[in-house]
Amino acid sequence: MAKDPVPPSSLPGEINIASRSLHTQLNRLITSRLPLGLPPHTSSPTLYTTGLLHFAHIYLTFESLWQDLLPPPSHTTSPSSPLLSFLLVDPWDADPGNTNAPTSPQMLEFLRNLRPKGLSRSGRLRRDLKALTGLSETDLSVQLSQFPGAKVQEYCAHIRKAVAQKPHVLVAYAWCYYMAVFSGGRWIRSELMKAGEGFWQGGGKKVGDDVPLGEAGLSFFSFPGTEDGEDIKAEFKERLAAAEGLFTAQEREEVVAEAAEIFKYSASLVRELDELLATSQEELAAAEAAEKDKERTEERERAAVRPRRRPRTWLRRPGIIGMVVALSCVAWLAVYHMGVQIMP
Rank of each mutant, 00 (worst) to 15 (best):
K3E: 07
L11H: 04
S21K: 15
L22I: 00
L22P: 03
H23G: 15
T24I: 04
Q25M: 08
P39G: 08
P40S: 14
P40R: 09
H41T: 05
P45D: 02
T46Q: 04
L53G: 06
H54N: 09
F55D: 02
A56E: 04
A56D: 05
H57E: 05
H57C: 10
H57I: 08
H57M: 01
I58P: 04
Y59W: 11
L60T: 06
D68Q: 15
D68T: 10
S74H: 10
H75K: 14
P79G: 11
P79S: 11
L87R: 13
L87Y: 12
P96A: 07
G97K: 13
T99M: 09
T99K: 15
N100E: 15
N100R: 15
T103V: 12
T103K: 05
P105T: 07
E109H: 13
R112M: 06
G118H: 04
L119S: 12
S120Y: 04
S120M: 08
S122I: 09
G123T: 06
R126G: 04
D128R: 13
L129Y: 07
A131W: 05
T133H: 08
G134V: 04
L135A: 10
Q143Y: 01
L144N: 04
Q146C: 12
F147G: 01
A150M: 02
Q153P: 02
Y155E: 00
R160G: 00
A162I: 10
A162Q: 13
Q165K: 14
A174F: 10
W175C: 01
Y177A: 04
Y178W: 11
S183I: 01
G184E: 00
G185H: 10
S190A: 13
M193C: 07
A195E: 00
E197S: 05
E197L: 11
Q201N: 12
G203C: 09
G203L: 10
K205F: 01
P212Y: 03
E215D: 12
A216N: 13
F223E: 04
G225I: 03
T226G: 03
E227A: 12
D228E: 15
G229H: 02
K233N: 07
E235S: 07
E244D: 12
G245K: 05
G245S: 11
T248M: 13
E251H: 09
R252I: 08
E254Y: 04
V255W: 06
V256D: 03
A257K: 15
A259I: 03
A260G: 00
A260D: 03
S268V: 01
S268C: 08
L269E: 01
L269T: 03
E272R: 13
D274C: 14
E275L: 06
A278Q: 15
T279R: 12
S280I: 12
E282G: 06
E283W: 02
A285L: 10
A290R: 15
A290Y: 09
K292M: 12
D293N: 13
K294W: 10
R300E: 14
E301G: 06
E301V: 08
A304P: 06
P307F: 06
R308Q: 11
R308I: 06
R309I: 01
P311K: 11
P311L: 14
P311V: 09
T313Y: 14
L315Q: 12
G319C: 03
G319V: 02
G322C: 10
M323C: 09
A326I: 03
L327F: 05
V330H: 08
V335T: 10
H337N: 08
Q341F: 09
M343C: 04
